[in-house]
Design a protein around this nucleic acid. Sequence first.
DNA 1: ACCACTGAGTTCGGATTCCGAACTCAGTAT
DNA 2: ATACTGAGTTCGGAATCCGAACTCAGTGGT
Lengths: 153, 153
Amino acid sequence: MYLHRVMENVRHTGTAIEETLRVVGDRWSILLVRAGLRGIRRFDDFCDDLGIARPVLTERLRRLVKFGIFERVKYQDKPVRYEYRLTEAGLALSPALVALVRWSEEYSQESSSDVTLVHAPCGTELEQAFWCRSCQSTFGPNAVKGVASQLDS
Amino acid sequence: MYLHRVMENVRHTGTAIEETLRVVGDRWSILLVRAGLRGIRRFDDFCDDLGIARPVLTERLRRLVKFGIFERVKYQDKPVRYEYRLTEAGLALSPALVALVRWSEEYSQESSSDVTLVHAPCGTELEQAFWCRSCQSTFGPNAVKGVASQLDS
DNA sequence: ACCACTGAGTTCGGATTCCGAACTCAGTAT
DNA sequence: ATACTGAGTTCGGAATCCGAACTCAGTGGT
């Protein structure tokens, strides 16, 4: 393994996705985004809906706010109260969420899926694919290859 | 022992995504899948590539094998040695991974050199789409709709 | 005035999980 | 005989997670 390490000059720590997963890669964050997409905004509602422990919810929302996925908005003055709304960046996580839901439907053994995702105009159950612009064709994961981006080293 | 209580505490729990995130929703699992897609297969290579602690890697790989995302394959007899390969289900996580990578590229503040995913035959950077079989067309997340599967409640 | 209630948290102790470092074990190479 | 390899396991301490109970400002009912 040492030889392999020497030959591999590309270090894979410190990449963008690792940074992202340090924010979003836990048991709750994606579920919080999903709840946000379903219209949930208030602390106690997140708490009841997910069954997350309150101290953990506090910490998680703070982190998601810090990284721009939720924003903390005052919605009432008299007793000052805040709620949490998805930002544009938070909404932009929906493709990832959809992909995970799709995977869950197909591969999760623990059944009882809640919803099936369909193509809205026609109601057909959707499939997922990668699209190659230059080939003008869809393809599956077997035709995916990783290429190191050229930036410094 | 503690999980029992979590399982009994079924409110909105029990949906497929929650089950999935209990398997894959941690800081390492998605990164392990990504490493698998990059061709990494051996214990020490995962360890070295991700900087994950060995006991955690052991537990994580065991869980991913149990849930059918990796398989443990003997690749040598003399000293019997095993490696970990992505299954079909594991490969099928790549759309979710791609969605996260693309989100990272766009919204993550920390942006270092990463791996760009391309269409292997032609080298073009891939895009992501949903595919409707009956319409024979691709579409984006805005045209996705959720339909409740038949279920009590 | 008194009391219950609401929403958004905080505090508490205990259980679980994470970590790096060092160790094991069978087999190989020098 | 010694060193090394690959795939783990064992160890203790640090960090995180959990439910339950508490706080705090304001509101509404009697």
